[in-house]
Nucleic acid binder design. Structure first.
Length: 572
DNA sequence: GCCGTTTTCGGCCCGACTGTTTTCAGTCG
């Protein structure tokens, strides 16, 4: 699969063309093609070989030719020439807030600036203010933008943004002039990382709400303040944008500000075709400019002949076509989860006793809870020796007699060793209620051997689930470069459920791979990988990721009753 | 650069805010 590298190449070309000053629609065409390929289920190399690229919407003759050259030769002359005109390093400057392609181009052409460090020095020396369109304030803003990016690298993990978002929403609810308030943007779509938090409120007195908002205690500074939009930076360096609209526009605005951008572009083009105009204030008749609907999102979708689209699906990867045909999946909900099977206790590296974990699980309304501690060779995580496994099983049997409305299952997160063998013998594996397998150390292995290692691990007859399949840590460790087709096929053939690990820096599998595996009819399990009782709450992020992967309740094993679960686990 | 039940040419989503201007370009989402 070269899909990822092809899509990255097209994105880069689009950015470079922007700086070069190409017309907007041309660069947009490259971005749309890049996005399509990024989320494509088919292998781009196969499409190239079969000369079927142009069947993909958004890929025409010119882009197809470039993709073919790149896939076949590993090189693209057009791109190499482009890089000579516009240095690739300039793309880093585009990440600085306030700098777009035009300003970056001016900085490069007039002052020869191509790195962040050169830009910082030029700002400090006051050399930008002489350029057309730049001034002293621009220099100060750029310096601020540079230091902000350095501190946060731009994005935060979902759970951080989620907590901040909840706090802001609760604060705004106190304001009596706020009628409705909701999270919007990528946080509402529950993307794995969040650039800034979008919050939407409805009110008849926007100014009052804005004044109230800037009084929020956690604000470090106010970036801009207007009557419809105010942006602030919180003390933890996360940016929050608040928009305020009239109540009759709340639904249209929520749709608009939830995005994604690509979803919205598609929505608006559908509106135009049907004689409407769609913006954040509502759906309007194109000719008379008369307001049609806008109070709720559902009204907007329905008026355009579409079913309501859940926010997690709004990435323009087919959801609008499904909404049109009324065939969108009924997505899994947090309430569907009957238990968590990936929980570590103080028997290995968790911080809480099994008994305390069970009480916490009861409070969540779970009907079962699975304690899956590490296996023996993972010494750093206090992995369980065979002797301690037996003791733990006894302890769980004892606790099961004590708790009568919840069942405790004894599992393990068993290491798949470098040679693909498992860290316990079969005689021990069959003592557990279920077996998770996973790779922990060593993880710097070439892609081909890692694929085989994982597959070998899943082939053991006692194995039920594959933990965090790619082992990525968002922002810290890249995912394994495994052959997903092979791994998903093997999981399907062995009946092993693929985990969606809910830990905010893992979210592994991710949305795209979930959807790929779903098409291969794989089954899934959503686990929190909890190491403390508080971590059990991460289930919401795993469920959100499953929703982004288009999963329904029936795709996920831990939505089943205890009886159904036990039958799937094959242990009576 | 892509696309077509009006079209093979001429469109392509839309509005707010800022900073630099003196009516608007650039950026952002």
């Amino acid at each position: 699969m070269k899909n990822k590298s092809v899509s990255e190449l097209l994105y880069k070309i689009a950015d470079l063309m922007d700086v070069k000053g190409e017309i907007f629609f041309k660069t947009r065409a490259y971005r749309m093609a890049a996005q399509t390929i990024e989320t494509l289920d088919e292998d781009i190399e196969v499409l190239v070989a079969k000369k079927r690229l142009q069947e993909i919407p958004g890929i025409g003759k010119a882009i197809a030719k470039k993709i073919t050259e790149f896939v076949e030769t590993g090189n693209l002359v057009f791109y190499e020439k482009l890089k000579k005109e516009v240095p690739e390093a300039l793309l880093l400057l585009l990440d600085i807030p306030g700098l777009g392609p035009k300003k970056v181009a001016a900085l490069y052409q007039k002052l020869g600036i191509s790195t962040i460090e050169q830009l910082r020095v030029a700002c400090l020396q006051g050399r930008l203010r002489d350029l057309d369109g730049f001034g002293e304030i621009t220099e100060r803003n750029i310096l601020r933008g540079i230091s902000l990016r350095e501190k946060t690298s731009g994005r935060v993990l979902l759970n951080v943004a989620y907590d901040d978002g909840l706090k802001v929403v609760s604060f705004l609810k106190i304001c009596s002039d706020v009628i409705k308030v909701s999270i919007a943007g990528s946080l509402r779509r529950m993307k794995e990382t969040i650039g800034d938090i979008d919050v939407l409120a409805s009110s008849d007195s926007a100014e009052t709400v804005m004044d109230f908002f800037v009084g929020f205690g956690d604000i470090d500074r106010v970036l801009l303040k207007g009557s419809t939009k105010t942006s602030v930076v919180l003390n933890d360096n996360v940016q929050v944008d608040l928009r305020v609209v009239k109540p009759e526009s709340f639904g249209a605005a929520l749709q608009y500000f939830t995005g994604s951008k690509e979803h919205n572009v598609h929505m608006r083009s559908i509106a135009i075709k049907q004689g409407f105009k769609l913006n954040e204030y509502g759906l309007f008749d194109k000719d008379s400019e008369k307001f049609v609907v806008g109070k709720t999102e559902k009204q907007v979708y329905n008026k355009l002949g579409l079913d309501f689209v859940d926010p997690e699906l709004r990435e323009n990867t087919g959801e609008i076509e499904f909404a049109k045909k009324h065939t969108l999946p009924k997505l899994i909900k947090k309430e569907d989860i009957r238990g968590d099977l990936h929980v570590h206790s103080s028997w290995s590296d968790g911080s809480d006793s099994i008994s305390d974990i069970v009480v916490a699980a009861q409070n969540k309304g779970y009907s079962y809870i699975g304690i899956a501690d590490h296996s023996q060779s993972l010494k750093v995580a206090n992995g369980l020796s065979v002797d301690r496994v037996k003791k733990k099983i006894k302890e769980i049997n004892r606790l099961n007699k004590k708790f009568d409305d919840i069942t405790i299952l004894c599992g393990t997160e068993c290491d798949i060793k470098s040679d693909g063998s498992l860290d316990y013998p079969d005689s021990v594996l069959k003592m557990f209620d279920y077996v998770y397998v996973g790779v922990h150390v060593p993880y710097k292995v070439s892609d081909t051997s890692m694929t085989q290692r994982i597959i070998s691990g899943m082939e053991n007859e006692h194995v039920n689930f594959l933990a965090h399949p790619t082992c990525r840590l968002i922002g810290r460790r890249p995912p394994f470069e495994i052959d997903f087709d092979q791994v998903f096929d093997a999981a399907k053939n062995t009946g092993v459920g693929l985990e969606i690990n809910s830990f905010p820096d893992r979210l592994d599998l991710n949305d795209l791979n979930i959807r790929r595996a779903l098409q291969k009819k794989n089954r899934f399990v959503i686990g929190t990988d909890s190491h403390s009782i508080e971590n059990l709450d991460y289930m919401r992020f795993g469920v959100a990721t499953a929703r982004r992967g288009w999963l329904t309740k029936s795709n996920v094993i831990n939505t089943y009753s205890l009886k159904e679960l036990k039958s799937i686990l094959g242990r009576g």
